[in-house]
Simulated assay, not measured.
Amino acid sequence: MKAAVLPEFGKPLSIQTVPDPTLGTGEVIVDVCAAPVLSYAAEVLSGARRYLLPTPVVPGAGAIGRIRAVGPDATRLQPGDWVYCDPTVRSRDGGLSPDITLQGVSARGEGGQMLQRYFRDGTFAEQVRVPTENAAPIGAIEPEDAGRWCALGTLLVPYGGLLAMDFRPGETLLVSGATGNFGSATVALALAMGARYVVAPGRNEAALDDLRRRFGTRVLPVRLTGDADHDTAAMIQAAPVPIDAVQDIMPPSVESHVVRAAIMTLRQGGRAVLMGGVGMLGGDDLALPYPWIMRNRITVRGQWMYDRTAIGSLVNLVRSGLVDLGQWTVTGFPLAAANDAVSYAATDAGPFKITVLKP
């Protein structure tokens, strides 16, 4: 099969003929129809993000495709079924704390790297091998819609955070990082889940205006100034009701005081979920006042990715029409233009935009 191979960090992707993946028990082979290209893929492939990813490797996180072959322990998946290939591979013997690797992207810890040695290659290829449980059925779709269904990969990350905080209909959510790819998806999801209001702070006025245009008056934009105390006050004042929850999904380039300003908007008993990359590249740690957390009964939780059960319920949100994949603009590239796709994804990054490879 053909695949885009990263020979080493900092080198261009090379289109090569590589062996077809072989099928084992507990695995499926999927024909890749569309593979999303992350907006920060160039940072991963250059080594700037310092992700644990041994080279040479076929990169690529997730895909929409059709089942080619299933192992002997698969009882429901059939060749031809449309599936989402979940890149979050978990050890099966990890109990409540499984080791995790992000197939084709990175790994977490020693156990994650052990998984990575086997589930190493990602989806920038004509075929991919994934654990059976990572091939999530999405139902029948038109082949030309495969690229748009790649939005599942963007939506699943913030959806995992909303489920982790037990976000409920009627609550008001503040999205720290609302104008980014994941942040704008969080806004769409919270509204689909019945949010009363979504406070959307950011510095990009055009992106804030676009969120209001897309989703209406339940979105409350706030323009940030960089003054933490001023911004906290402005976010509180923007909401006509107390803020129940904050989801932070800021990228590594953001300073921690921006996240702190958002969390300090919470009402008594409020919850904050941290899902971003703040501090990953250095800088100050997030500092929150102990007395304020204690006296106001604040819950602060970290959440990395999502539980596997999130995929089915997200597909149901899409199928019900509550989440509209038509919000996303898709730009597709053939596999031979993988390097162009990576460059385009970086320069054309923004809310409700997807770049995909179509092997």
Rank of each mutant, 00 (worst) to 15 (best):
M1F: 01
M1K: 00
K2I: 07
K2C: 01
A3W: 09
V5I: 12
P7M: 05
L13M: 04
L13F: 02
Q16F: 01
E27S: 07
E27A: 11
V32E: 05
A35R: 07
S39D: 13
Y40H: 13
L45G: 05
S46L: 15
G47D: 07
L52W: 06
P56D: 05
V58I: 15
G60Q: 09
G60V: 14
G60K: 00
A61I: 03
A61L: 11
G62Y: 08
A63E: 03
R66G: 05
A69N: 06
V70A: 11
V70M: 14
G71Q: 15
G71V: 06
R76E: 15
L77A: 10
Q78F: 01
D81F: 15
Y84E: 03
C85G: 05
R92D: 15
D93N: 14
D93W: 13
L96W: 12
S97W: 08
P98C: 04
D99R: 08
L102C: 07
Q103T: 11
Q103N: 02
Q103I: 11
R108H: 11
E110C: 03
Q113V: 06
Q116P: 02
R117Q: 10
R120V: 06
T123D: 07
T132H: 03
E133A: 04
E133H: 13
N134E: 02
G139R: 10
E144N: 08
C150F: 10
C150R: 11
Y159G: 08
Y159A: 10
G160E: 08
L162I: 08
L162M: 10
L163H: 08
L163F: 01
M165A: 12
G170I: 09
T172G: 07
L173E: 10
L174D: 04
L174V: 12
S176G: 09
S176F: 00
S176Y: 00
T179A: 07
F182N: 14
G183R: 04
A188N: 04
A188E: 11
A188M: 15
R196N: 09
Y197V: 02
A200K: 00
G202A: 08
G202W: 14
R203P: 00
L208Y: 06
L220G: 14
V222L: 11
D227K: 05
D227H: 09
D229C: 06
A234N: 05
I243G: 03
V246A: 13
I249P: 03
M250D: 13
P252V: 14
E255A: 12
T265H: 04
G270V: 02
R271Y: 11
V278R: 01
V278Q: 04
V278P: 07
G283A: 06
G283F: 10
D284E: 15
D285R: 14
D285Q: 10
L286N: 15
L286H: 06
L288C: 12
I293Q: 10
R297W: 08
R301W: 01
R301K: 12
G302A: 09
W304H: 09
M305I: 05
D307R: 13
A310H: 11
G312Q: 09
G321K: 11
L322S: 13
V323D: 05
L325T: 08
Q327Y: 03
T329R: 12
L335S: 04
A338T: 00
D340H: 01
V342L: 02
A345F: 01
G350H: 01
T355Q: 12
T355F: 10
K358P: 00
K358Q: 13
